[in-house]
Design a protein around this nucleic acid. Structure first.
Lengths: 138, 138
DNA sequence: AATTAGTCTATATTTTTTATAGACTTTATG
DNA sequence: CATAAAGTCTATAAAAAATATAGACTAATT
């Protein structure tokens, strides 16, 4: 399961994408529209900013805005940033790899093989689908 | 990521499958062979037993054994039992469904659509692959 | 200068995961 | 039938992670 943090990030990003024309959006507006604790959301938006996904402006008329078009923000990027590994096991993670302690040889480990396939199937979707793909269709 | 509990369960099941000919296997043997805390492993094996996957025998010559052939134990079964939902969001879980609070209509929610696809791709593998498929190949 | 709004650092709370303890029951066998 | 072997059960503890909050600080606008 994705953490609340990641789920909130998706909802916030969707809101920002659906309101690009309004310029910078207040944290408090996103928080109340999406029913997220404002202080918790602050942290999340900051992380997204530090990762280069969002930009911000302080003072009156300030707020957060997308730094890229929704099409350019893959879902996998958001998940890895806020949730960590997408793979089901450390030994099949591309970005957070850790050697398996219990198994002697990954090359002949059947669990490794199956979980690699699961990872590939998942990434095929999450790396190719972007913020644009999760905007509400009408 | 799968929890340690689920990872330990896989390793224990693999060990049991690879030693079917030896009759019931001691918890302590699995624990030391796979470097798992014996008391923690106890709980895990009990859960697997209560779910009908393992059987056990008390007293001398006792231990745990598989109640079904490895082929009949889908990986998804183990994961759901010990880890809960396989889906990335509650609103796309088949076995642990919860309605999404932030979205008005799941039918037109893009996040719902993508995450359903991820779930389907994952389940296609985890429900069709069994304990047999993760045994070490030689 | 005053107000608005994001930034930063720290901490608190809650939940989940991981692990342990110990008394109890069942079974085999000498 | 006594003893030892081995799983069962209930409870609790410890550690880690997830979730949430507080408040002082900085930057921008008017």
């Amino acid at each position: 399961m994705l953490s609340k943090k990641t789920q909130y990030a998706f909802h916030a990003l969707i809101y920002l994408a659906e309101n690009v024309d309004k310029g910078p959006i207040l944290i408090s507006e996103i928080a109340s529209e999406k029913s997220i604790s404002i202080k918790f959301l602050e942290n999340i938006l900051l992380e997204l900013k530090n990762a280069g996904i969002l930009g911000s402006k302080k003072g009156k008329g300030g707020g957060y805005y997308l730094m890229r078009t929704p099409k350019e923000i893959p879902l996998a990027r958001i998940i890895r940033l806020l949730d960590g590994p997408i793979a089901l096991l450390p030994c099949v993670s591309l970005n957070y790899y850790e050697r398996c302690e219990n198994c002697k040889d990954e090359a002949i480990c059947g669990l490794h093989e199956v979980m690699s396939k699961v990872r590939d199937a998942t990434l095929k979707l999450l790396e190719n689908k972007s913020l644009k793909d999760i905007l509400t269709r009408e």
